[in-house]
Design a protein around this nucleic acid. Sequence first.
DNA 1: GTATTATTGCAACATTGTTGCTTTAGTGTG
DNA 2: CACACTAAAGCAACAATGTTGCAATAATAC
Lengths: 126, 126
Amino acid sequence: MKKTRNTQKQDYVIDILTNAKHTMSVEAILKAMPIKVNKTTVYRILERFAEKGKVHFVTGEDGKAYYALCNDCNVNHEMHNHIHFQCKSCKKVTCLPYEIEVPELKNFEIQETQFLMIGICDMCIS
Amino acid sequence: MKKTRNTQKQDYVIDILTNAKHTMSVEAILKAMPIKVNKTTVYRILERFAEKGKVHFVTGEDGKAYYALCNDCNVNHEMHNHIHFQCKSCKKVTCLPYEIEVPELKNFEIQETQFLMIGICDMCIS
DNA sequence: GTATTATTGCAACATTGTTGCTTTAGTGTG
DNA sequence: CACACTAAAGCAACAATGTTGCAATAATAC
Ligand SMILES: [Mn+2]
Ligand SMILES: [Mn+2]
Ligand SMILES: [Zn+2]
Ligand SMILES: [Zn+2]
């Protein structure tokens, strides 16, 4: 285990994700920062948090990474196997409280899952 | 309906995807081309094929789009709701013959699904 | 306070995909 | 075949997202 340090900027990332209703892109996190932070810093903070299991991300249909705090999504298992939904209208990606049954795959080692559904979310549906 | 034309380059894309064992990125398709083709052309060919339902794609964990021919994955339904697997070692993305049960989401309109599992594939497992 | 080194900043870069416009080439018609 | 029409392809410039190497800063232990 490497030594880690507590920093203001890491705390800000946690705060921002804690108060977020949806997953957030790096760009969105940067905009939500109360102070100026370099984007590389945010990328690396999230990378460390993901390794520690504090955070998980989904890759949207747009190819962007969207991050969310891990609350209780890895209590019973290593993978964050709930569904995510990306709205084609507002582009927001949301964690949904639906778990997917992960199939057994012979000779495959499953380490992570990313389940994404795409369409129109409840806020954008007219 | 727009008029469409049959072209040599579209045929090459179909040939390449037909003979592919895995999904392919645009880069890989370009490399597999027997003649020089512009990347914009391949992007647009795949875009047209995706609209027609000839092809579907998954966004890998790496944010890249991986394309596959639709064989019988949309016979009974509009969505291509089978699982995909991306290997962290060889990076290949494969369509797997496992269908996911799509949950009902109140007030959400589901248009597409992308189910991705990540780990080590059968070829790379030692 | 000082040393150690994890974290941050910076600049330059890589990769993937997109856009506007021009050129090329399928396709139908006479 | 010659010609018109326009879908498809090419080209160049660009946007967006993420990465890398190295220097500067600051958290922690002593
Ligand atoms: Mn999680
Ligand atoms: Mn399909
Ligand atoms: Zn929405
Ligand atoms: Zn593999």
